[in-house]
């Protein structure tokens, strides 16, 4: 598998560190109930198909990427910089 970093181009999977589901971007507000934190940290939709997850370009530019890919075929559909999203890196 290869991922396309918006800054560095298409790179080997080994340059990236997998962090997990995009759920991590939906950080609960201060004072949110514990269930909301459980939802963000542990509970997962875990789709067999298209998913969005966070990857860190560890041995490249150090950017956090939001990758859209298919968990059944390993096809990578899109990559974007988390920092470039509206609201930035949550």
């Amino acid at each position: 598998m290869r991922l396309t970093c918006p800054l560095c181009g298409t790179r080997d999977r080994r340059e990236f560190y997998y962090s997990g589901s995009e759920d991590y971007l939906n950080r609960p507000a201060e004072g949110a109930p514990i269930e909301a934190w459980d939802d963000m940290l542990h509970l997962r939709t875990n789709p067999a198909g298209v998913t969005k997850d966070l990857w860190y370009h560890e041995t490249g530019c150090g950017s956090w990427l939001l990758v859209t890919r298919n968990t059944v075929t390993h096809a990578v559909l899109a990559t974007e910089l988390v920092a470039a999203r509206k609201g930035g890196a949550a």
């Binding site: 997990g20 589901s21 542990h42 509970l43 997962r44 939709t45 875990n46 789709p47 067999a48 968990t71």
Partner: peptide
């Protein structure tokens, strides 16, 4: 490995990633 799909039929999200 398919626990998340079956649990989703009952409206659940499990603490599982495949």
């Amino acid at each position: 490995g398919r626990s998340s799909q079956v649990a989703a039929m009952a409206g659940m999200r499990l603490p599982i990633e495949s």
